[in-house]
Nucleic acid binder design. Structure first.
Lengths: 193, 193, 193, 193
DNA sequence: TATGAATGAGGATTCATTCAT
DNA sequence: AATGAATGAATCCTCATTCAT
């Protein structure tokens, strides 16, 4: 993730306290966006972080930049999940694991769902470096499945990510705790050739 | 839908021109929400309807009430689609038709997707009379499928509507035109027992 | 002056109350800018006008637009002064009158002086229709003087306006009341061939 | 100029590095104000000086104090110009030289023009010690001219400085390079008895 | 009854100044 | 003594809602 702090040259690392604050802001923002969605207010985020608004703006030039950064972090986490899944020997198990965990993350995050809905195409190649990693990892998961013949041939990366998004959205409307499990099953069953 | 206009006694029907205005407002609002999502502005809606803002507020006490009314109308339309589907002799064909058409409607309507995402639980019983009809019709579609053994037993009304929402959301992110078709296939395949 | 009110088509005149408010806003803004310069606050202007901030924004999309409008009005007034001066039979008397009155107006208006200083080139042709009138009128004043041989040949419109601005600025720093008169005399003497 | 640094007793001179920093800050501030006017930002000045903002505040308690100091320096320079001019044998030549050079300096300095315009009365006696020197030198220039009968009798120090300011402001709006020369000529002609 | 002008709380962002490192 | 991160009051502007015409 590139450093967006305007006062920082790419080289010089942030002072210890600044780095701490930056993280507190990101954590607070994530919480706020998870709970209140994208229109959580900067003041609220600042309050949660125990910081003045100005401090947020020292680290992120714009509310949008803050959201972007969170998305970027989520992409990084998601790529890591995919990497983890790749360790499983069975191709289908690996894809299942990734789908479940990815959808679950997104489901729990209202801001992320909104960002995804508003901006669309979050996973597009070229959005950022973390994204490239994600695309690559998920591509491998899909390829393995295709080779093993356990996945519909017409489901590529774009289709898979849209479906994962759909699963997350369905899950976010789950009433009963078991429902989520059912939704994932439905999706996975539907993905078989 | 009950008349929400405050100046109206429940009994007295609206004057002809008032009824006309009401419909123009609803049409304009639907267009606006479809295009711009939930944060379309009241002024914009008024302009589209060829009406002053004040007139909107004469018919709907609140922006939220206007959105609710559109949702209600959408539910009515959706119930009609379900009723139509019920005419098909084959249980599975009927359900498929309903799922595809319902998801498509929602997919095309940004405001509806947002409303659904923000408010959640749009289909809850008790939201309004139209909803009761919808619940009943879709219930029949599902029952027929269950009886015919062509639908997973653990998918009831709540599950089905969440999945339909998921399908709509996935479809709204479709890049290629064919993708939508694929998503519907995946869902339908997944719904088989 | 073109109508800048966004909600208005050029044709339809403002409602009586709106026109009244528009004028009150302009008056209040002029006062505020005269006293506090260009960074008078919108809230302050609204308060002076006895109006909410929103009302200002209904009439002028931007603080800058409000300032521009005031400048435009000042240009109109200035053009009128020039027109009046043109009625005098003596070429030099006419120019003198115009210089004195124009400089005096500007001198009294801190906001105008700032606008002029910040933006520069207020009198440039093409800024607005009123400006064209002004350029034309002052051009005539100067031509008459040149023909009569009572004005330095190297002082054209651009030079004259810069000098008038200089006079206004000098005058705005006058300590004694008579000083202003002296400054004008100096300028006028200097302008003779 | 008295030392304004709060940590300094009036007596103790600044350490060598502190003095160096102080000058770098002043130079940077002058550049910034010349280019961007009075609303150049403290951070920008600090950056130009290669110094942290905090360091500026160690030397100057307030942005205003920094501006004041620059004005004071400008006054010193101006006094020096006047002193130089006094060396010329001809009274009128001396005054002309001083007027031209002084106006030119001010013309080139946007911040100075603003400061002058905003604060007014920069040359008032009593503003600072440098000012006294300036008042004295310019007083001599004027006296010599009065004695030689080459200057309007009603132009004293206050009038002369206001006019010089006016000339600077006029010049700052000069389009053509030659215009400036014309303005100075006009002023000088006007100053003759 | 319809209109659209007015309202004003609210929200993002800036920047002089303070203060912990 | 220097640094630059943190602060938060201040400021412009938006938009749902109210109300005079």
């Amino acid at each position: 993730m590139p450093d967006r702090t305007p006062q920082q040259d790419a080289e010089r690392p942030l002072r210890a306290d600044a780095r701490r604050n930056r993280q507190r802001i990101l954590d607070a923002a994530r919480d706020a966006f998870v709970e209140e969605g994208t229109d959580a207010q900067m003041e609220d985020i600042a309050r949660r972080a125990g910081v003045g608004v100005g401090t947020i703006y020292r680290h992120f030039p714009t509310k949008r930049a803050l959201v972007d950064e969170l998305v970027e972090q989520w992409l990084a986490g998601n790529a890591a999940v995919a990497a983890e899944a790749l360790e499983l020997p069975d191709a289908w198990e690996a894809l299942s694991l990734y789908l479940r965990r990815g959808a679950e993350d997104m489901m729990q995050n209202r801001g992320l769902r909104q960002a995804y809905g508003d901006l669309g195409k979050l996973f597009e190649e070229g959005v950022g470096p973390k994204n490239r990693e994600l695309v690559s990892n998920v591509g491998k998961l899909l390829d393995r499945c295709h080779e093993a013949g356990v996945l519909r041939a017409d489901v590529g990366f774009a289709e898979f990510r849209a479906l994962m998004y759909g699963l997350a959205m369905a899950s976010s409307n789950a009433d009963t705790p078991g429902a989520q499990q059912i939704y994932a099953d439905v999706f996975l069953r539907g993905l078989r050739p």
